[in-house]
Design a protein around this nucleic acid. Structure first.
Lengths: 219, 219
DNA sequence: CCTACCGATCGGTAGG
DNA sequence: CCTACCGATCGGTAGG
């Protein structure tokens, strides 16, 4: 499995003056277990849906009891929220890279699409795409949706920039973004790791289709 | 609301010899009530998810008691199944039309996409796209997924035909179908009836994008 | 004997 | 990390 979005885990930044460090143990073993819980939960949420996945199912899968989960997480909803946050991985850095005008806009779009596809086709990404933020309360759900709007805005800005510099023909950036996100968000529903095409190959084919179109060039 | 997918209800075919006519009342009023239950359920399923929607919520919305629902439907799962069947509406006829080679293949593809988009953006279609067949048992779920495979196959066949007759450039029909269904299936998640673009305008823009591509024509 | 529907509660299981 | 439970609510069904 691809663990890359988990690798750059931020090291705990020490507080200036003798931090209290209250409840959370924050040891490495505790963090590893917590991550294992989130990953297992993400898999089960993606497979069965949020409401149809019980905490007992998550605990059983890990060989622990349900009550033990509460040593690592606050409640069921916070598990989903943390899974969705994990799913964004390093996309924040990717969004920043998209502002680098030294790279041709079409090339930047390709990088973005590959990065997004990679993030959405692992345990946490599948949880985001297949479950989403609907089961969450207003506040946590809004923070997830806010990040997704940033992703959408990033694509629309690239298209607008590409039209302005003559890379793209005139078109509605919102329509393009809707088409692209729909296509990418649907991939986890049908792509099998055992299939003949990798995720990279699939999204590169998508980009090929979108740049050139399907009609034969006239003349 | 668009009731067109409900209109061609098959009239009850009488049995050859003095049919027993057992349990199902099958009166018009009974059928109307049953359809109202399915439509309300479809709305609530789409809004809250299947498991998070209780039979009490459906009954309350209709101003009746939960127990009364059981005079019209067998159980909760059969409600979802019937909603999904309704969502296919007259798409079966549309699939047949796609075999008419007197219509240019690109034009047939446009008709298909418009029909599918119309079917997926009403109460029952939103239930199909937002809930899907996952909560169903093996047998009923498989029958839903079988119809969806027919839709997928229809698109792939059109692309294959279009490549053969020179309408389309060489491309992977499966990739095109995956891209198209992803884009269309995502529409109910973001399109608002109050928005500036109608469903028709959205999917026509999609087709424009897919046929012509986004890059400026070179030379 | 039928339909349509009610108030009440069944056995089980949810998150905590 | 487990046993033992809670308040509530689930889908479904009883008698009338």
């Amino acid at each position: 499995m691809n663990d890359s979005i988990l690798s750059p885990r931020p090291v705990a930044v020490p507080s200036p003056k003798r931090a209290p460090r209250r409840r959370p143990p924050s040891t490495q073993k505790h963090e590893d277990k917590r991550t294992a819980i989130l990953r297992t939960a993400a898999q089960l949420f993606a497979a069965n849906g949020y409401e149809a996945t019980s905490l007992d199912m998550i605990a059983d899968q890990l060989g622990i009891h349900k009550a033990t989960l509460y040593h690592y997480v606050d409640n069921k909803e916070s598990i989903l929220f943390q899974c969705l946050v994990m799913s964004f991985g390093d996309l924040d850095a990717v969004i920043e890279r998209m502002k680098d005008r030294s790279i041709p806009v079409l090339e930047r779009l390709r990088i973005f699409v590959r990065s997004l596809a990679a993030a959405q086709n692992n345990d946490f990404g599948r949880c985001l795409v297949l479950v989403g933020s609907r089961p969450l309360d207003q506040a946590p759900g809004d923070s997830i949706r806010q990040f997704q709007r940033r992703l959408d805005m990033t694509v629309r800005d690239l298209i607008t920039e590409g039209i302005a510099d003559g890379s793209f023909r005139p078109l509605d950036p919102s329509i393009f973004a809707a088409l692209l996100f729909g296509a990418l968000n649907w991939v986890p529903r049908w792509h099998k790791d055992a299939g003949k095409l990798s995720i990279q190959q699939v999204v590169d084919s998508f980009m090929d289709l979108l740049t050139k179109g399907i009609e034969v060039s006239r003349r």
